[in-house]
Amino acid sequence: MAVGTVDAAASAWERLRRAAGGPAALRIFSFVLLLGVWSVATLADPSGQVLPAPWVVLDTLWYHLNEEGLLYHLSITLWRVAAAFFGAMVIGVALGILMGARRRADIILDGWHILFLNMPALVLIILCYVWFGLTEVAAIVAVALNKIPNVVVTVREGTRAVDRELLDVARVFRVDRRTTFLRFFLPQLYPYIMAAARGGIALIWKIVLVVELLGRSNGVGFKLHEFFQLFDIAAVLAYTLSFVVVMMVVEYGVMAPLERRCTRWR
């Protein structure tokens, strides 16, 4: 019996050890490590002003959530991200397909494309604000213009890689143009569109904050600017944290399931 207990303990230890090496455990470990490093680092700052402790940030987050309209600014920013994202995706995918499929269009648009691809985000933002005024439209257009060239690069690549043999099937069987596009052509682009969307969300929300900082009077970017001037680092980190949580929800709640759906047949 004693031997049995030892065996059971050994196998339980073995299971634990194996679980500890598993991906979920590693993720938790990595998160705890971050909190640990953060907590230790706060010791270097006795004032708590420059690097507030994790629990202070959490406390601040709670305060802003309940008293200071964090959700309002968050939702304003999210709406700008969504508008710029969909605008950039629709226009970028359309241009990418056009440039991938039509050589002439590719030659005509390529120069413009390279120009916009290499234009610094800040320049586009300044120009949009100067030309269209400090408006909501100008803000969203500026963000979308920053993203469109990247979408074009990916989708054009995808369009060039489309399997012509499958399109020939549609031609021989006289499938109408709409169905050919939606069921024969577009599904071949899904992996490329998904890749563009993934990178798009990440890039767009960063640029949206800059746009808000420079020319809007609400949104996360505007608030960050305010906290910077007040030197309220706890609030800066609280807003960052809340936005990261939202973007993780978008990634795991929307993008990942969408991608699984698109690649179900593999």
């Binding site: 043999e165 020939d168 099937v169 021989v172 024969f184 599904p187 899904y190 047949w265």
Partner: peptide
């Protein structure tokens, strides 16, 4: 109708 050398089915359908 045309039956090609490879089946040319749409893999996502």
């Amino acid at each position: 109708s045309y039956m090609f050398q490879t089946p040319r089915l749409l893999p996502w359908m």
